[in-house]
Design a protein around this nucleic acid. Sequence first.
DNA 1: AAACATCATTCATTAAACTCATGACTTCTT
DNA 2: AAGAAGTCATGAGTTTAATGAATGATGTTT
Lengths: 316, 316
Amino acid sequence: MIYRYVPSLTALRTFESSARHMSFTKAAEELNVTQSAVSRQIRQLEDELGIRLFERVRQRLVLTEAGASYVLEVRKGLDQLKAATLNLLAYQGVGGELLLACLPTFGSRWLIPRLGRFTSQHPEINVNLVTRIEAFNFESEDIDAAIYFGDSNWPGTISDKLMGEEMIPVCSPNIFNDRQEIKKPEDLRHHTLLQLRSRPYAWQEWLKSKDTHDINPAAGPKFEQFHMIINAALTGLGVALLPAFLIKEELSQGLLVQLFEDSVRGRNAYYLVYPENKRGLPRLQTFRRWLLREASRHEMNYSPQSNNKLQNHPDI
Amino acid sequence: MIYRYVPSLTALRTFESSARHMSFTKAAEELNVTQSAVSRQIRQLEDELGIRLFERVRQRLVLTEAGASYVLEVRKGLDQLKAATLNLLAYQGVGGELLLACLPTFGSRWLIPRLGRFTSQHPEINVNLVTRIEAFNFESEDIDAAIYFGDSNWPGTISDKLMGEEMIPVCSPNIFNDRQEIKKPEDLRHHTLLQLRSRPYAWQEWLKSKDTHDINPAAGPKFEQFHMIINAALTGLGVALLPAFLIKEELSQGLLVQLFEDSVRGRNAYYLVYPENKRGLPRLQTFRRWLLREASRHEMNYSPQSNNKLQNHPDI
DNA sequence: AAACATCATTCATTAAACTCATGACTTCTT
DNA sequence: AAGAAGTCATGAGTTTAATGAATGATGTTT
């Protein structure tokens, strides 16, 4: 944590420029100093590191292997510091960019419709969305926070539960009306169960909760994403088990019908996750407060019997 | 490209330490200077940036919003420079780590079996493999180079063609012997065509090259990765269209049989790709030279009629 | 109320970075 | 082939930046 072995930025900047121009003289021009100053900086840097960065071959400079590797890494570091500083100057410290990873269907059907409210409340914060289906690494990806689905163990991060998920079986009204009636779970035997690849145990859990054991829960076409399985259900390909809140529109317009009245609450949930070292990022905390409020409002609508989730977050 | 707006390393280091301890006195201890020096460094940094980083509220320090955001970014930059320097000192500039992204099946069946030779020739270079199925961004991912399949337009990068791909239809010997004989492409009508999700047009291209038009090229179960479709073919689920070199073992052991003698060469190929700014990285160039040689040797085995690909790379 | 913190400030000192002038060598030009 | 022009290196001196010591101002703890 202590940056003892980092050479001075003057030295690194001088080295970077020299390597880019392959000339101390040109570097000196660019940096508005004399060639002598550049020559000395490089030499001192080399002495300090104990490694030659340039070979001086007949009045010409050639990067050594060490120098060639080092300059690439140094450039990354300087770029980062430059970007940080320019960003600070641009936004004057308030607001700024927030890069959020999000599941695609959750993003398009839940988050984005609400995001306008956040933006108007906090015009200084610029939320950028990127979709991720699989888990990723905060270390290597530069994402500020993520909304994902699962349970809350993700080491090195802080998770806030947003909402659970009510799974309901739905199908197109054509299926519901035209063919065999579906009155009890067993009647699903004669229908195609649409499968979501990221939730392989969805039907199994649901059927078990209904004490229905003689239906193969894994048979049926598999889909990658929610929006694909929603489309499949809309076109009458079969029965899908979907979170109620993602198909609110389709249900209210009668494009999909719910097959049984009661819903099943899965054990997994949606979480906001962010790395521990971003705990102190003001714009992230602002977003978090807003998101938790929206989620708790959502929970109250979708499961009035459950506790008000605001109680879980006394700090908002 | 010129790092004019980057404050001095001393200032940034002092700021980082102060923010971590939330105390100028403690930071001074850590940095082995007096509290006075720290106080003035911070003030000067604030003046230079024109933004307050700490609020001094009743002899206590509190980070401003600006300071809280800035310190996170500054820390990243300093970490990068520290890592770069320690790396340089550790490896003394020769060799080092090389992070390579690779398609999973290509990695396990082609690259890894050969990688031992590279490692023994170049023990100073440490090749780390990571698998990627989809395209990614060199900017955000910190990967040195990638082996991918496709055509060679990937902006901002340099590509070297490694090898083409001979697609051959194969199936389990059970299918081949027990059921209807397969003598000509039309006979495939009665068989299941196994599909690979990343090559949706594979069968279509192949059937077209055989002038066979009355078979639906897209029907059949879809698989995510080569190793899955290989397993499916092994267990007799259907006929798969696979690159010959990936199933060398299975063919020679008789676990899979090739259905027709001639092979079809796809228009896509395997490429080594790396970002332009890594052109000068010595360990990458070393790896590249070795890889191109291995690939050309491979090409000579798998397509004796094709040109010796070494001619395409006069610089090795 | 006294003792002990903390950050801020002034003045003198030390260390780092730089310029100038010049030398040694190489490459280009005529 | 010789001179001009360019390159990096270096010694001596100057300028600039960073620091230390002492002290002040303000708040906290006992």
